[in-house]
């Protein structure tokens, strides 16, 4: 992935960035709110997408980290008045602790068993949130969560909140990009392709996967914090299986193997949801059919269209798909 290939590229990216930054000035408030949603779901999608794309792990626990961060913010911020940024740091800390616990167990497995185990973890978290009424208020969840006011800037205001989210998002993407290029990222790719060989080469495969899981969990957690501030409420439905599935679909929609895949997928999926649910009550059917089509006819996501139209070359996704399929055969 090359971020700045030439000048034209740079200009295009600058314009895109400018358009995003200036969004609140030319778009309606609803468009801005929708972009905020794209950003926090984008974090969640990056979390899921990074594990799939970089490490070949399909984790269905990520929504639980998203929700955990939200619950901590609600419990400490809304109910116990702990100030920013302490509650937020505690939230990330809690996410790390839970991710480590789950990671140590889950990383002993691979592939479909890993998927099932992470699914089960996610469901445990959901069941607990749903049934614990004394602390988490069960189904009702925690209400009245507000973003902080820092240095006189009130982040309860939509455009301020949008800019803050956008900044954090840009930072998150940048870090992820650095990570992907780092030796750690390359090792992760190696493990995705062939864990045995990497182990034979002396890489601590188990621990590399655990660390990747922790990093991904933090991304989900950051998304969860932003989401909770934005809606002002955290409930068990946030971590329900249907949400987890929704995120997975977003990632695939964009293309899990592309760096920008999860983000693009989220942007499209969130807008699809908004537009289709306005048009028909049967929007779940429409979305379901769209996803069936994608899986069958566009398994590498929408970005693969752009790719097949563009340069292609040795990194063409089709080739990579074939390569991986071959590598997958045991």
């Amino acid at each position: 992935m090359i971020l700045w290939k030439d000048r034209r590229q740079l200009v295009l990216e600058a314009i895109a960035g400018g358009l995003l930054i200036l969004l609140p000035f030319y778009a309606g408030e609803y468009t801005v709110t929708t972009f905020v949603r794209i950003i926090y779901f984008g974090f969640l999608a990056l979390s899921v997408g990074m594990l799939i794309g970089q490490a070949g792990m399909i984790s269905l626990t990520q929504t639980a980290f998203f929700g955990l961060a939200g619950y901590v913010i609600g419990l400490l911020g809304a109910e116990r008045d702990m100030p920013f940024p302490w509650r937020d740091l505690v939230a990330i800390g809690a996410v790390l602790v839970m991710a480590l616990t789950f990671g140590l167990i889950a990383m002993r497995t691979h592939k479909i068993v890993f998927l099932m185990i992470t699914l089960a973890f996610g469901q445990i978290c959901w069941a607990f949130a749903q049934q614990n009424t004394s602390l988490l208020h069960g189904w009702a969840g925690i209400r009245g969560i507000r973003p902080p006011t820092i240095g006189g800037i009130n982040f309860n205001q939509t455009s301020n909140f949008y800019w803050a989210s956008l900044l954090i998002f840009a930072l998150g993407i940048f870090v992820l990009w650095l990570l992907a290029k780092s030796p750690f990222g390359l090792a992760l790719n190696g493990i995705r392709e062939n864990p045995r060989r990497m182990a034979a080469l002396g890489y601590p495969v188990y621990w590399i996967r655990v660390v990747a899981f922790l990093i991904a969990a933090v991304y989900a957690g950051v998304g969860g914090i932003l989401a909770t501030y934005n809606t002002g409420i955290i409930t068990p439905t946030t971590i329900h299986l249907s949400r987890t599935i929704w995120v997975l679909l977003m990632v695939i929609l964009g293309g899990a193997t592309y760096f920008w895949g999860p983000v693009v997928g989220t942007a499209i999926a969130v807008w699809l949801d908004v537009l289709i649910s306005q048009g028909t009550v049967r929007y779940n059917t429409v979305i379901g059919v769209i996803f069936v089509m994608i899986v069958l006819f566009l398994p590498e996501g929408v970005l693969s269209i752009a790719d097949s139209l563009g340069e292609g070359g040795s990194l063409s996704p089709l080739r990579r798909l074939l390569d991986r399929k071959i590598a997958d055969k045991r």
Partner: peptide, 30 residues
């Protein structure tokens, strides 16, 4: 008609069956 096309791929299989369940649940509701 569908599942055999994605045989061997964990991710597409998972997604295909999820998408199918969304459709079934929604059509049943209708």
């Amino acid at each position: 008609t569908m599942l055999f096309r994605v045989r061997g791929g964990d991710l597409p299989q998972t997604l295909l069956t999820i998408a199918l369940s969304m459709i079934i649940a929604d059509v049943s509701l209708a």
